[in-house]
Every structure is written in C-alpha cells, then in structure tokens.
Design a binder for these strands. Structure first.
Lengths: 149, 149
DNA sequence: CTGATACCCTACCGCTGAGGTAGGCTTTAA
DNA sequence: TTAAAGCCTACCTCAGCGGTAGGGTATCAG
C-alpha cells in the first residue's frame, strides 16, 4: 500500500460532496454515516482539504461543507497532495517548489544517483495520472439526490 | 513517501550488480560498503530478490551474488514487486493473480466504489512505468569496471 | 437569550511495520 | 581445516497511521 487511508477517505468525502450538487452545505456527520467512516477522523482530513482551498465551510446550525470550485476544476493531484503531502515515490526523491528533482544521496558530487531516473519516471507517471483525473469524473451516474432538480 | 527504502536499497543492489558485468559473484559486503548501506539489512532484501529469481547466489568463500538474467531482461516491476510485495496505491485496491481489480468496499453490491477508477488508473500508471524501465537503463555510463572487457 | 447544531482545535493513545541488529548455522575455496 | 561468504531466525526501537476525547466557537431557530 502506498497512499494511506487519508487519501482514500478524503477522496470519498470529495466525491460525496460533489454528488450532492453543492447547493447547500453538507454536515460532515452525514457524509461519515453515508460512507461508514469515523466522524472524528474525517474532521482531521477535511481540515486539510479546507486549508488547501478545496472545500469551504459554514459554521453553526445548518452548517457543513461545500466544494470551493466546480468538480471539473478540481484535480485529484490537488486532493491527494492536500491529504498526503508532497507526492514522492520514495523519500530520497522530492521535488522542490521550483520543480527541480533532487536526491539526498547526491551530496557527494562524484556519486550521482543511478536510480534517480527510475523514481523520477514513477513520480511523473503518478502525478500526471492524478492531474488528468478530475473530481467530475468520479461522480457516479446514479446520484442519491438529483444533481439538477 | 510511497515506497519504502526496501525498494530504494534493493534497486541500488541490482544496479551495482549489473554494473560489475556479472562475470563472477560479488560479495554483499562489497556492495554494502560501496553504497554505504548496512550489510545485515541488505541481506534481508537480497533474500527477497533471490526468492523471486532475480539474483543467484554462490555460497562459501569467494561467493556472492549474480544477476539471474541479462539486465535488459529484468524489469523494475519485477524488482520492486519482489521487494515491496504486490503494487497497490491503497489497501483497498489489490489485483488478484487473475488480474481482476477488486475493492474491499464493494462487498455490498449496491454500493459500488466510486473512487475505484482513480486508484486503478494510478496503479496502472505505476506498473506500466516500472515495466517499461529495465535494469539495463539504470547502469551508469562510467562503470567502475569495464562492462565488456 | 438560550439552546441546539455543527465546525474547529489540541492533545492523546495503541498498534503495526519499517529499518536495523545480533548471532548462530551451513557451504565452499584455498 | 580455517576463513569467507551466504542463510536463517529472533529480536529491538520508533515514527506515523488510524482513531478518540473533549472542549471551544460561530450560527441559526424559537
């Protein structure tokens, strides 16, 4: 297993929100029950989604969460990264904010990392797939409530 | 981080073996020193590689390990799978030996897993990348010993 | 104004697996 | 026969995952 349940649960929450149309906020307790997941734990995950600007919250009675954007405008790369942190297939490969790929074992300039090309490819494949998949694609064809009433 | 250092270290061992030409067995202690990795730990990893049929061993004095096949005939998918176990981006997605992708949350037939398509895509992207990359591609251009004397 | 509702935040906790160590046994070349 | 190497089992430590607890705060209904 490579991603934790943080990604699994968090994506489920996003899909659930998308499926409900987004007209009015949805209480997290409702989603927790629908998905069969622990509410207290989901609160941690949805907090990450909120900080990443992927969902918005309404506090107080009749509060809940809403998607911050149209499902088609939300990529899974954003969602997964918000939940799991920066995507790297192994610890030694991390992309800096400027996009350069570095390897911790390359501190010795004479000893270039022979496996870097492999992990760079794997990372690119994962990121590309996550970027190409939008939330809109994951909304099931048979919604619980009508998408547009 | 998605793969553990098992994959990282194990791939390094394979590259090191490939780089030495494969004429005679290489002691694991030699590789451990060259890569700066703990010998006792590498022994566990190379045992997995051997059980998977990727390396062969010669016991006794002047013993060591050899690649079981030509580097071009060894894919990174085999290597990584031998070290990490079956490749799955998250726990709920596992491919059975027959190739079907199942989801643990689909036990209830009415509740199909909406996120399955995402994780299936991610898994496919990873596996394809690992299959396309062979050990031969990771051998550095400047070998310590001549590749073909 | 007073609950009730639901988000928000911090702290904690058990357990698993990663990463590594230790030590003894077996095989083989010199 | 001895040293070099692989082989095997057991063990250890620790971070982080998955989850719980509980109090605080904003908001709405009546």
């Amino acid at each position: 297993m490579m991603f934790s349940t943080k990604a699994e649960y968090g994506v489920r929450v996003m899909v659930d929100l998308a499926r409900r149309g987004g007209a009015e906020p949805v209480a997290l307790a409702e989603i927790a029950e629908a998905e069969g997941l622990p509410l207290a734990y989901l609160e941690h995950l949805v907090a990450r989604l909120r900080r990443a600007g992927l969902v918005e919250s309404r506090r107080g009675a009749h509060g809940g969460y809403l998607l911050a954007r149209e499902p088609a405008q939300i990529t899974m790369a954003e969602v997964v990264e918000a939940l799991e942190g920066r995507i790297a297939p192994i610890e030694c490969i991390s992309s800096s904010p400027d996009g350069t790929i570095s390897c911790v074992r390359e501190s010795d300039p004479a000893h270039i990392c022979t496996t870097k090309v492999l992990w760079t490819r794997v990372r690119a494949a994962i990121v590309q797939t996550l970027q190409e998949t939008t939330l809109a694609e994951l909304i099931p064809a048979t919604p619980k409530k009508a998408v547009a009433a």
